[in-house]
Amino acid sequence: MKTFIDQLGNHHTFETTHKRIVSLVPSQTELLYDLGLEEHIVGITKFCVHPYHLKSTKKIVGGTKKVNYDKIRALNPDIIICNKEENTLEIVEELREICPVWITNIITIEDNFQMISDFGQLFNCRTESQKINDKLGFALTEFKKFIKDKPPETSGQKVAYFIWKNPYMVAGSDNFINELLKLNNFENIYGNNPETSGRYPEIELKKIRLDGDPDLVFLSSEPFPFKEEDAFEIGRFTHHAKTVFVDGEMFSWYGSRLLKAFEYFKILHSKI
């Protein structure tokens, strides 16, 4: 009998290591796979696209905001992995009627290290989790050196990171995207703006110059598929901002995806 505490402070007591896992968070599904737990994953969401073959070998139980409880129940899971931001409280409470629900809460890179370590303990794959964290630690140190060596004229550029249209929504404060923007030495104009507070505030395009007049406008590939016409529409409300389409997975997926993100960020800096 062992007791574990998830990232919301919930206490869980388990007699045995889990054998049947349902994951309702795409990035955490990828992490479970990278930890060598593929055979124990029985259910995933339709957005769990990495690795791609899981969509044909595992049961799809819905999305992140709407799940099929009957499908999950039929899988007879012994643990369900959720996330505070990705899944609603209503979903979590309903899932608790099926089996224990482990909830992660990832805002900082340290939270990410903690989640990976927790999974190592929870699923008895401590060696694998330590290897991933060691690689991440090394890559993070190297990336910080890369950023430190950037020319002063390219440092501290102001950014608006768009995630949605109709209404327009951006990455604000207290979220993983904002943390990675800061790691890249970008100043998120909505990261500490009292006029547009919140994790993902709605904004008015016509006020973007008053909100901070960004040097760069990042249009994320997810969850909204921005197009060239969107770039033009947003760009004309700025002063002279450069609009860049960015890979949303690299900015918003935590877990082992962060290893790929560091290399992606280096390439991104070479283009702006």
Rank of each mutant, 00 (worst) to 15 (best):
residue 77 P to Q: 02
residue 79 I to S: 08
residue 81 I to H: 04
residue 81 I to K: 11
residue 82 C to W: 03
residue 83 N to T: 14
residue 83 N to D: 14
residue 83 N to S: 15
residue 87 N to W: 06
residue 88 T to E: 05
residue 91 I to F: 15
residue 94 E to I: 06
residue 95 L to A: 10
residue 97 E to A: 09
residue 97 E to I: 15
residue 97 E to P: 14
residue 99 C to R: 13
residue 100 P to M: 11
residue 103 I to W: 05
residue 103 I to T: 14
residue 103 I to L: 06
residue 103 I to G: 15
residue 103 I to C: 12
residue 104 T to N: 07
residue 104 T to M: 10
residue 106 I to V: 11
residue 107 I to F: 05
residue 107 I to K: 12
residue 108 T to Y: 03
residue 108 T to M: 02
residue 108 T to P: 03
residue 109 I to R: 00
residue 110 E to S: 09
residue 112 N to R: 02
residue 113 F to T: 02
residue 113 F to N: 12
residue 113 F to R: 08
residue 116 I to G: 00
residue 116 I to C: 02
residue 117 S to G: 11
residue 117 S to T: 08
residue 119 F to R: 00
residue 119 F to M: 12
residue 119 F to K: 12
residue 123 F to I: 12
residue 125 C to M: 08
residue 126 R to K: 13
residue 126 R to L: 10
residue 129 S to D: 13
residue 131 K to T: 04
residue 133 N to H: 03
residue 135 K to M: 09
residue 136 L to R: 10
residue 137 G to Y: 06
residue 138 F to D: 07
residue 140 L to A: 00
residue 140 L to Y: 11
residue 140 L to V: 00
residue 141 T to W: 13
residue 141 T to M: 00
residue 142 E to Y: 06
residue 144 K to N: 15
residue 145 K to I: 12
residue 149 D to N: 06
residue 149 D to R: 03
residue 149 D to Q: 08
residue 150 K to R: 05
residue 151 P to A: 14
residue 153 E to C: 13
residue 153 E to R: 15
residue 156 G to W: 05
residue 157 Q to V: 15
residue 157 Q to E: 07
residue 158 K to A: 11
residue 159 V to M: 15
residue 159 V to C: 06
residue 160 A to K: 01
residue 163 I to M: 14
residue 163 I to S: 11
residue 163 I to A: 09
residue 165 K to M: 14
residue 165 K to F: 04
residue 166 N to D: 10
residue 166 N to V: 13
residue 167 P to E: 04
residue 167 P to V: 08
residue 168 Y to I: 03
residue 169 M to A: 13
residue 169 M to Y: 07
residue 171 A to V: 10
residue 172 G to H: 05
residue 174 D to N: 06
residue 175 N to Y: 01
residue 175 N to E: 05
residue 176 F to G: 02
residue 178 N to C: 02
residue 179 E to V: 02
residue 179 E to P: 01
residue 180 L to Y: 12
residue 180 L to A: 15
residue 181 L to D: 10
residue 181 L to W: 04
residue 183 L to V: 10
residue 184 N to W: 06
residue 184 N to E: 08
